[in-house]
Design a protein around this nucleic acid. Structure first.
Lengths: 211, 211
DNA sequence: AGTTATTGACTGACCGGATAGTAAATAATA
DNA sequence: TATTATTTACTATCCGGTCAGTCAATAACT
């Protein structure tokens, strides 16, 4: 008789526990390479090392699999954003510098996040709720944090009061352009991200800081 | 046998001359609403007021129709960009103000251009040459013009020399964000474009101009 | 322990519907 | 009647989704 507390690895159960993630990973690769409609479940199954039937054990439909996959990979980016809130204090200029450096390092260089973004854009007319989720979990927190930082800077007299306080999007817009650029051109039209980062920082600091 | 030089208006030929454009228009609407793979030639034909067979008289394949459609609608945006070059002279600040106003009015508010952009992003892995064409005909001319304007401003002493001169993308990046925002959220997450435009202009002018 | 029964993750053949592409027939025009 | 733009009917293929069946792992039993 088996001990109730026996933690011995149960092959069958472990398989079942890992399958969904394996399928989601495979789905991410195939969907991001070929788009929603073009991707076949057969190919996803092949990549995951199972057959199509198995996918239906864990997911109701192709649509449900896609939604689950996007949610899964949005979650990863959200965790990265949450890390950002643990940033250091100091002058507003230093704070912005540090956070922008973080953003460029973790968000811009994260191809996975960008591929999710591509799918969201492509499928936004069909799956608007996924885009809204991205707004709620990634974009809005970033913008709220930024707005807060700018307001505090204004209160401290470090930042000049301006229309920018109410449109913090303009401050991080250059990051959106990098995403757009890389989604469209990948490496074919090179973008010197290092120089671009410096220019971004300079524009924002010159544009915001009180003289 | 028809007279070779006969210039008489031939109804049949006029029809034939207009069909391709009618089909391209219909293709744009259907492709932009449903994406490449999901759109059926039957629906495009229906919208164009013909049947599927007719499409094959003018276009080799679905793929060729898609490529032709994107080229056609990129051309329209390119014409708009070329208009921009006829801008007035004056102080660099005035020039930027005028050109940004033009961009927001003609590019941001042009849903068609944005739908093309969505398709380019969605299909970039499959049709990279279309994205490159967009770069060549739309993006690069804008950036060249901007770089030129900034350089001239620096020469005149109106603009401070900075890293921004070599990364003019950061200056128009807020426009890219509007595109991204509207592609993702349409009207669901509202963006006050008027206020945003003011903030953009303020950031850029404060960021660039010599004090 | 050895044998048998049961479970359940997984398979793979199959179905129905959809659709890109073709080509013969037809309608419109001159 | 001759030409040609267009339609109609058709084929071949692909793919999402289903389901009866398989087999290895486990539990029950002697």
């Amino acid at each position: 008789m088996a001990d109730v507390l026996d933690p011995r690895p149960d092959v069958r159960r472990r398989r079942k526990a890992e399958r969904p993630q394996e399928i989601l990973d495979a789905a991410f690769h195939e969907f991001s390479r070929n788009g929603y409609a073009t991707t076949t479940l057969e190919r996803i199954a092949e990549r995951a090392g199972v057959t199509k039937g198995t996918i239906y054990v864990y997911f109701d439909s192709k649509e449900h699999l896609f939604i689950s996959m996007v949610r899964e990979f949005t979650k990863a980016a959200r965790d990265t954003v949450q890390q950002m809130f643990e940033s250091h204090d100091g002058s507003t200029a230093d704070l912005l510098r540090a956070q922008f450096a973080f953003i460029y390092q973790h968000l811009v260089e994260d191809r996975r996040r960008r591929e999710v973004l591509r799918m969201l854009i492509a499928e936004a007319p069909r799956f608007p709720e996924l885009a809204d989720r991205y707004h709620q979990e990634i974009l809005r927190p970033c913008l709220d944090m930024l707005r807060q930082a700018i307001r505090r800077g204004v209160d401290r007299g470090e930042i000049r009061a301006s229309a920018i306080v109410d449109s913090p999007q303009v401050v991080i817009a250059p990051i959106a352009l990098v995403d757009l650029w890389l989604m469209l051109f990948d490496e074919r039209q090179p973008l010197d991200v290092k120089a671009y980062f410096d220019a971004h920082l300079e524009l924002v600091l010159n544009g915001l800081l009180a003289k």
